[in-house]
Design a binder for these strands. Structure first.
Lengths: 123, 123, 123, 123
DNA sequence: GTGGTCTAGACCACG
DNA sequence: GTGGTCTAGACCACC
């Protein structure tokens, strides 16, 4: 479910956060589903438990999951998050597109890319 | 010409690199133009000369500028870099779009954004 | 493992890069082997940690190693690099041989040298 | 006769020295030929006269030319230099070949290169 | 004046 | 503990 890429320059805890976020946002993890325990996931990925703990804490802080003492961590049901996340992603996209424009990439080239992405079937 | 944003999470030297790259790629800095000297730019931006030095070194390594001891740093004339850089940027865009798709952003929303960006007049 | 020659005109960081490159290219350092930490190597060689850091950064940039924050630097497994490096070295050799020819060194003299080098047993 | 390559990382004075050395060693400049004057060459190459002066001084020091006050600089006739220079170049070649061997280049590959170089007709 | 290397020491983020 | 960035200041080579 979670894969760590050590060649990825982002810190491990961030990779884990991102992975759970997309799993939750696209519905693969339904509300109230229990996440793997901190310790079991740490062993499975052979990384430090503190790293998992940090990822879960931040996921809780940003509202993606809730934690119950002695029981575990669970996916939160909060529709507003979906919108908030979409807004954030679109904002990043805007900056990226601005940059594309600055270095001389044409609108045509970009729309072609967009079409290409959305024509692929989901894996 | 160069602005440092201390709120930006990226390191200073990287901000400088990116700024010069776009200035070179969009033609604002023509081939063989001399860049500000390491020390003068350091003073102008009130940062350490080593930080500028590092930015210039990496710009030279990646082929955007060439440096001559005792004379200064100059914009390199290398057309192939433009294409290489465009390809790289489009590749990043592709990953970004893939992510947008994963969290449920529609193609329509994106094309609207693209149009919006390209309708603005250049400043 | 690493020796610094202060009589060598090349900068220290470059000597370190070259040394690790050959160690990786000839297989003495296998993929995913951990390199000495920045600080420990600095102490061992009695040089500044920044100098090691620079060497490691450039080794990472050129694909010989990968670095993970909080964990260390490791040898990357990338076969294509071996070929790329061989091509680069042979290219330099070609220029060198061209120069030999220009100043009147004969083919016979060179082939004798080549044989001499390759007859020695590996140490 | 002399071309300066600003993309070459070597200092300008060294490029000039090397160029005159090969011209002298391969006989293009015969003994007692007068070299261009410091000032005229400086203007021709649009570089600082001090740089030319330095090149000529070093050429004189190493015995390739001699200078006559008020008259100019002339090619020296000294056969022993040829041998000395050949020895030096062959020594550099030996180190280079050693390096080739270390990174796994075979003797066969090298002899092919050598043949290739010497088969070309002089330009 | 220019670029380039190195040192010493600080601070931050990550695990 | 690990890597990464930045500063301040020194010294060298080149033009």
């Amino acid at each position: 479910m979670i894969i760590i890429d050590y060649n990825d320059k982002r810190p491990i805890y961030e990779q884990i956060i991102d992975r759970f976020q997309t799993l939750i946002l696209n519905g693969a993890l339904e509300p109230d589903t229990q996440l793997p325990s901190v310790r079991s996931l740490a062993i499975e990925l052979s990384i430090n438990a503190n790293t998992i703990q940090r990822a879960y804490s931040e996921l809780e802080r940003s509202g993606f999951i809730y934690s119950v003492k002695g029981r575990g961590n669970f996916v939160r049901a909060d529709e507003s998050l979906v919108e908030k996340q979409k807004a954030k992603t679109l904002n990043e996209l805007q900056e990226h597109l601005q940059h594309c424009k600055e270095i001389g990439i044409t609108q045509k080239e970009i729309t072609e890319y967009v079409s290409k992405i959305f024509m692929e079937v989901d894996k």
